[in-house]
Design a protein around this nucleic acid. Structure first.
Length: 210
DNA sequence: CGTTGGATTGGCT
DNA sequence: GCCAATCCAACGC
C-alpha cells in the first residue's frame, strides 16, 4: 500500500480536494485494529475564504491548519461532534480539506460499535459520523498523515466521475468547493445551502444539485 | 467576563 | 421539515 507523499498535500485545497476522492483513509487504533474507508466526499477551505477557520488568522484552535501540509486538523463543533481535515499548502498559509464522507472498508464491525448503528451508510457518511466511526477526536489533532502510524492515506482508485456543488452549512454560494464521487451511495445527504435565487423543483439528473 | 452561534446529527412532527 | 443537544472559541464590553 503506497502512502500519499507530502508533496501531494503541498498545493491549494481546491486542487487537493478532488484528487483525494477514491484514496483510502486508514486509522490504526491503540489496540491494533485497522479501520479504513474510501474517501467519497470532501470540501476545500482556502486562506482567503471567509468561511474557513483560518480566515481570521491563527489561534490555538486552528494552529494545525497553519502548520506543515499532510497533517490532520481535528476540531470540535456543536458541542458534540468532531470534524477532520487534511492540511494543505505550505506552513503559515492556513488551508485544509474537510473529509465529509467515506465508504467503509476495513473494521466495519468496530465502526458499528463506535457509532451504535448497523447500516453501513450510517457509519462514515457525514463529517461528524466519519470521525466517530474511526475513533478520531482531540488526541488525533495534528497527527502526521505521511510519517505517523495513527492515521494516514493510501492510494486508491477513483472509479466514478466527480460531482461538485456548494459546501454544506456554509453561507457562500460563490465557491463551488464541495466534491464527491458521483452516484456513490456513501456520500452524505448534507444540508441544503441557502436559497440561491431559484429553487430547482426536482433535479432530473445528478451532479450540481446536492 | 458574558454572549453568540457553529464546516452536525438524530429524533420527532 | 423542524429543532434540541451540548461545548467552547471568538468577540464585544
Amino acid at each position: 500500500m503506497t502512502r500519499l507523499p507530502r508533496r501531494f498535500f503541498a498545493r491549494p485545497s481546491t486542487e487537493v480536494a478532488p484528487e483525494l476522492l477514491g484514496h483510502i483513509l486508514v486509522r490504526r487504533l491503540p489496540d491494533g485494529s485497522r479501520l479504513s474507508a474510501r474517501l467519497v466526499e470532501v470540501e476545500a477551505y482556502e486562506p482567503d475564504d471567509p468561511s474557513s477557520h483560518a480566515f481570521r488568522g491563527e489561534t490555538p484552535r486552528n494552529a494545525v491548519m497553519f502548520g506543515p501540509p499532510g497533517h490532520l486538523y481535528v476540531y470540535f463543533t456543536y458541542g458534540m461532534h468532531f470534524c477532520m481535515n487534511v492540511v494543505t499548502r505550505r506552513a503559515g498559509e492556513g488551508s485544509a480539506v474537510l473529509l465529509r464522507a467515506g465508504a467503509p472498508l476495513d473494521g466495519v464491525d468496530v465502526m458499528r460499535g463506535h457509532r451504535g448503528r448497523e447500516r453501513t451508510t450510517d457509519l462514515c457518511s457525514g463529517p461528524g459520523r466519519f470521525t466517530q466511526a474511526l475513533g478520531i477526536a482531540r488526541p488525533e489533532n495534528g497527527a502526521d498523515l505521511v510519517r505517523g502510524d495513527v492515521v494516514w492515506l493510501e492510494r486508491g482508485d477513483r472509479g466514478s466521475p466527480i460531482g461538485r456543488g456548494i459546501r454544506v452549512g456554509v453561507h457562500d454560494t460563490t465557491r463551488v468547493w464541495r466534491y464527491w464521487l458521483d452516484g456513490d451511495p456513501y456520500v452524505s445527504r448534507g444540508r441544503p445551502g441557502p436559497p440561491t435565487g431559484k429553487r430547482s423543483p426536482r433535479p432530473r439528473s445528478r451532479s450540481a444539485t446536492p
